[in-house]
């Protein structure tokens, strides 16, 4: 059966098999053990030191400027996302989280009502109306005051909108 296999091939096959077994063992050992528990038993600060991402030195400093006036390197760095045309290759979620969900939210916001929004005024009236509905549930005086104020605001908005509709949308 093994006639066709040379020694090198056999050795490499054994190497592959041992690597596979190693991966298998690591795969399940990693699930079971706590990270660095043995190290952390004897050196309790190790875990803290390893996973703290920001460590301050004991040197005297205020807002990253040392007492002798030196500004330490790489401080107050404002990082930006890379802006290139291929960003979506590495950050595909930006496509979805940005315009797609904005549009989906716009569509689903008015899914219950029959009339679609035609202007920002309608949007404002709708949001205020919802807020008033929420507030009317509360019985305290603050809630009542808010209700009055918002009702006024909503009425103003509706008036404004009706005026705008009457004039045909022109100013």
């Amino acid at each position: 059966m093994l006639n066709g296999i040379t020694i090198i091939e056999g050795l490499i096959l054994i190497l592959m098999a041992s690597l596979f077994v190693l991966i298998f063992v690591v795969q399940f050992r990693r699930r079971l053990r706590h990270r660095f528990w043995l190290l952390g038993l004897f050196f309790p600060l190790v875990r803290y030191r390893l996973f703290m991402d920001v460590r301050r030195s004991l040197r005297l400093e205020y807002r990253d400027i040392l007492v002798d006036g030196r500004v330490r390197g790489w401080t107050n760095v404002q990082l930006r996302l890379p802006r290139n045309v291929f960003t979506w290759l590495w950050n595909p979620e930006l496509l979805v989280k940005g315009p797609v969900f904005e549009f989906a939210n716009y569509l689903t916001r008015y899914s219950g009502s029959k009339t679609p929004p035609d202007s920002k005024v309608q949007l404002a009236v709708d949001v205020l109306g919802k807020f008033i509905l929420q507030q009317s549930g509360s019985a305290d005086s603050v809630g009542r005051e808010w209700r009055v104020v918002l009702a006024e605001a909503a009425r103003e908005s509706t008036l404004f909108q009706s005026k705008r509709l009457r004039t045909g949308g022109s100013k």
Partner: peptide
């Protein structure tokens, strides 16, 4: 650009601090 000049990757910090971060050490 998200690496420090000495080559340390700062992405974890970037994510945690919402792209406005300050690295002391």
């Amino acid at each position: 650009r998200q690496f420090r000049p000495d080559g340390i990757y700062a992405w974890e910090l970037v994510k945690r601090h919402g792209y406005r971060m300050r690295v002391t050490k």
